[in-house]
Measured scan of single mutants.
Amino acid sequence: HNLTITQGKLFFHYNPKLCLSEIHKMEEVSGTKGRQERNDIALKTNGDQASCENELLKFSYIRTSFDKILLRWEPYWPPDFRDLLGFMLFYKEAPYQNVTEFDGQDACGSNSWTVVDIDPPLRSNDPKSQNHPGWLMRGLKPWTQYAIFVKTLVTFSDERRTYGAKSDIIYVQTDATNPSVPLDPISVSNSSSQIILKWKPPSDPNGNITHYLVFWERQAEDSELFELDYCLKGLKLPSRTWSPPFESEDSQKHNQSEYEDSAGECCSCPKTDSQILKELEESSFRKTFEDYLHNVVFVPRKTSSGTGAEDPRPSRKRRSLGDVGNVTVAVPTVAAFPNTSSTSVPTSPEEHRPFEKVVNKESLVISGLRHFTGYRIELQACNQDTPEERCSVAAYVSARTMPEAKADDIVGPVTHEIFENNVVHLMWQEPKEPNGLIVLYEVSYRRYGDEELHLCVSRKHFALERGCRLRGLSPGNYSVRIRATSLAGNGSWTEPTYFYVTDYLDVPSNIA
């Protein structure tokens, strides 16, 4: 807008934040220059609390790290170098490059900038070799853009010569660093050979998330399962459950009422301010606690030095998902009996873990797994792929695949051998790939016309006998059925096997 004052003059007093240069501009645009008398524009009460600059400061050096910015700028000295009290560095987070010096300023003089007072450097006698002032900004957020400017702080001049310097606002972004852990990993099994893994992005990506790394490792069953005799009275049979499938998407929606109208769909109840505040506090606490764990609990591995020492970490090797089922080394339970199943799973520490690289999504279907087997899954978020990966501390989750139908069934015939004193040795093959492992066998036998009897055969007993022995049988026709019990439950009964026990007292003698 054009402003013209045809008559009258300007009068400025007691404006401590208004620089004289701005008042002189007002004289020019209003056409009143030359009308004012000496005392109409006070030299001592206008701009006496402001830094009124008329020179431009330029930054000469900028260096960044993930949490620091090192700045240096060209030296500046007023005509009387004693008038320079120091520099004021202003900075704040700036997602967009549209910041002005006066953003967030209120009537009390406060604003949204963080201000650092910096002492002037030592003055050199040689004007050509003056030290460049600077400042190291610490405690910054990774991968965050900051708006920065600097200006001088000078003393009051009796001659009211307006001098000083100020830089333009520059924008500097800190470097990326390792992201925080992925949030809320959930693993479920939808079949006997697959596990579905879902997660949420890290709360602090500290860069642009480029991919996720998912490692999985087959877990050995508890050692007590191999040692305890679950045929003993009072000892509860062990059981394991597989990871249940995901709930429906509708039930997972946030901010939804727990109660549904019987007449149909209901609208979600909005969260109160107290609920939102509580969630923010919980989120802040979780982030602080995660940072504490990362800094205190997890110790970084030592990389190899120039002395030739090897990095103890196993090298990563990509495998196809079809090879995942046989990740671990199978060892027989008892070496003397080769027909026992290889369900003991000690994992070799030198073995390469299978892994998958996930790009542009937060889910993965891990296939080719062994049925009813526990897996430990390790999830890392990465925001750099080359020249070397920059990934987060791992988040861990466990899951067990679903049982395989008929995996616990005894394959092959049940054979028998009759000894003296009416002892019958029953023999059968253990299931080759049971659900988890076989903890015991149930032997059901009966003599024709009598009630059915049951015998429990422990895992250890089966390994020693290759089956079991029935003792003290009365003469007669017998039928026997056997079924295995694994961590997933009972298998199917075998087809009945028949044998006849004679009275050993009636056996004919070869003595003449």
Rank of each mutant, 00 (worst) to 15 (best):
P205W: 06
G207R: 00
I209G: 15
F215G: 11
F215A: 07
W216Q: 13
R218W: 15
E221A: 01
D222M: 10
D222I: 11
S223G: 05
S223Y: 13
L225S: 07
E227K: 05
L228W: 12
L228C: 15
L232A: 12
K233W: 08
G234E: 12
G234D: 03
K236C: 06
S239V: 05
S239H: 10
R240M: 06
R240N: 10
S243C: 10
P244C: 12
E249W: 08
H254I: 13
N255G: 13
Q256Y: 07
Q256C: 09
S257V: 12
Y259R: 13
S262R: 13
S262Y: 10
S262Q: 08
G264D: 09
G264V: 05
E265D: 05
E265P: 14
C266L: 08
C269N: 15
C269R: 04
K271E: 03
T272E: 11
T272V: 04
D273L: 10
D273R: 08
S274E: 09
Q275A: 09
I276L: 06
I276S: 06
L277T: 02
L277Y: 06
K278M: 08
E282F: 07
E282I: 05
S284M: 14
F285Q: 02
R286F: 02
T288G: 05
F289I: 02
F289R: 01
E290S: 02
E290G: 09
E290Q: 03
D291C: 02
P300H: 12
K302F: 14
S305F: 13
G306Q: 06
T307P: 11
A309F: 04
E310W: 15
S315E: 12
R316Y: 13
K317T: 09
R318C: 06
R319Y: 05
L321W: 11
G322V: 06
G322Y: 07
N326K: 15
N326R: 12
V329S: 07
V331P: 13
P332A: 10
P332H: 10
V334T: 15
V334L: 12
A335P: 13
A335I: 12
A335S: 10
F337G: 13
F337Q: 06
F337T: 12
P338D: 10
N339G: 07
T340K: 13
S341C: 08
S342A: 13
S342K: 15
T343N: 09
T343Y: 07
S344H: 11
S344W: 12
S344T: 11
V345Q: 11
T347V: 06
E351S: 12
E351F: 06
R353Q: 11
P354T: 11
P354H: 12
F355N: 14
F355V: 09
F355D: 03
V359P: 09
E362A: 12
S363Q: 09
I366K: 14
G368C: 09
G368A: 10
L369K: 00
R370E: 12
H371Y: 12
H371G: 10
F372V: 01
F372R: 04
Y375F: 08
Y375R: 01
Y375K: 01
Y375W: 14
Y375L: 12
I377M: 05
I377W: 05
L379N: 03
Q380H: 15
Q380L: 11
Q380A: 07
A381R: 00
C382I: 06
N383W: 01
N383K: 01
N383A: 08
Q384E: 09
Q384F: 06
Q384W: 12
T386W: 15
P387K: 10
P387Q: 10
P387M: 04
E389K: 06
E389C: 12
E389F: 15
S392Q: 00
A394D: 12
Y396S: 03
V397K: 15
R400K: 07
T401D: 00
P403Q: 02
P403S: 02
P403K: 02
E404H: 06
E404G: 10
E404L: 05
K406Q: 10
V411I: 13
G412I: 07
G412V: 05
V414Y: 02
V414N: 02
V414W: 02
T415A: 08
H416Q: 11
E417R: 05
I418L: 08
E420D: 12
E420S: 03
E420Q: 03
E420L: 09
N421G: 12
N422G: 11
V423G: 15
H425I: 11
M427A: 04
M427N: 14
E430T: 08
P431F: 02
P431V: 05
P431Q: 03
K432A: 07
K432P: 11
K432Y: 12
E433P: 02
E433S: 15
E433R: 15
E433T: 08
P434L: 02
P434H: 07
P434D: 00
N435L: 00
G436Q: 02
L437F: 05
L437Q: 10
I438H: 02
V439E: 04
L440V: 05
L440M: 02
L440K: 04
E442K: 04
E442Q: 04
S444Y: 14
Y445N: 02
G449K: 09
L453A: 09
H454L: 05
L455T: 09
L455K: 12
V457F: 12
S458M: 12
R459T: 07
K460V: 15
F462A: 07
E465S: 13
R466G: 02
C468F: 09
R469V: 06
L470W: 07
L470T: 04
G472P: 07
G472A: 13
G476A: 03
Y478D: 00
Y478V: 01
Y478E: 00
I482R: 01
I482V: 09
I482D: 01
A484P: 08
T485I: 11
T485D: 13
S486D: 02
L487M: 14
A488P: 02
G489R: 04
G491L: 03
W493P: 04
E495N: 12
T497P: 01
F499Q: 02
T502R: 12
D503F: 11
D506P: 11
S509Y: 15
